[in-house]
Design a protein around this nucleic acid. Structure first.
Lengths: 153, 153
DNA sequence: TTGCGTATTTGAATTATTATAAAAAATACT
DNA sequence: AGTATTTTTTATAATAATTCAAATACGCAA
């Protein structure tokens, strides 16, 4: 195996090169090692706009992209990214964890039937009059989930 | 074992009697049979004010109260009660399910460290300006979770 | 480059939950 | 009451999501 490999040979790679450097910096700044697996996952996560991903889904995408990573690695990295503020965990369904690449404060629509998540910008929704907190505590975050279903009637 | 037993012998039992009748009606109205186990669980759930319970916890309480119910029964009943509108499932932590005996619309404080849940009355908090929903969908519920932590600094 | 210490990866284990199938209990019918 | 029918319970197995700890690979210093 050559020290410097092209991974995916096709295309000019210019943009990928920029992305790669960008992502590598992102990872280094989080004091994580830019390993082949981690970079591949970062590429999948941050390639195009904001995403809501489950571990299972990311694993499938990695396999599909020809990167053989174990599920345990997926979980490790999702949690490390979350701890570093590169991802945010969204709890909507008690049976699985979703990770959101949008780490700015915002809320969510959750389509109960399909399991799909959609961002609601923070500015598009207001939460007011939060009552006094229990003594000795402070707000860590305010999560609003608007659960929606198909109209029927 | 006598046909009519007092279960817990101490005390006058008057209030318990009322409660028992009340709970039996509640269960019957949900088209469920008032079995010994189901009644015992209902008693534990609705004995005193609103509660937030996990399956594991309810099971422990049942055992402690001398009622031998299997974990499968706990899950069955929690789900049946939820389907009947007697309980509401609250998703705060993707690793376990909480069931809330308060089925009126309201929100929650969630203490991240201890895992404790506390109700916020619906009237004590306002959510406004929910943006337009995706086409063909309607709101099923709006859940607000105020995640809190111990003050430190 | 080589070797070392630590971060990372991964197969195996663990946990919460659900499914199954047979026995027990509750209700319905007569 | 006596019997049939249906619901419920439970032991056990199965599954899904997640975590653990041993083995590996990486990045750095010499």
């Amino acid at each position: 195996m050559p020290a410097i490999s092209a991974d995916k040979g096709e295309g000019c790679g210019c943009v990928m090169q920029y992305e790669a450097i960008d992502l590598e910096k992102k990872i280094r700044d989080a004091s994580l090692r830019p390993t082949k697996q981690r970079l591949a996952l970062a590429r999948l996560l941050y390639a195009e706009g904001n995403r809501h991903v489950t571990a299972e889904r990311l694993h499938a995408e990695a396999m599909e992209a020809g990167v053989a990573v174990s599920l345990a690695t997926i979980y490790n990295n999702l949690h490390q990214f979350t701890a570093a503020g590169l991802l945010r965990e969204v709890v909507v369904d008690s049976s699985r964890s979703y990770f959101d690449t949008n780490v700015a404060p915002h809320h969510h629509f959750f389509h109960e039937k399909s399991g799909a998540l959609e961002d609601i910008p923070k500015s598009a929704l207001t939460v007011d009059n939060i009552p006094a907190l229990p003594a000795g505590t402070e707000v860590s975050s305010v999560d609003v989930i608007v659960r929606i279903n198909d109209t029927r009637g």
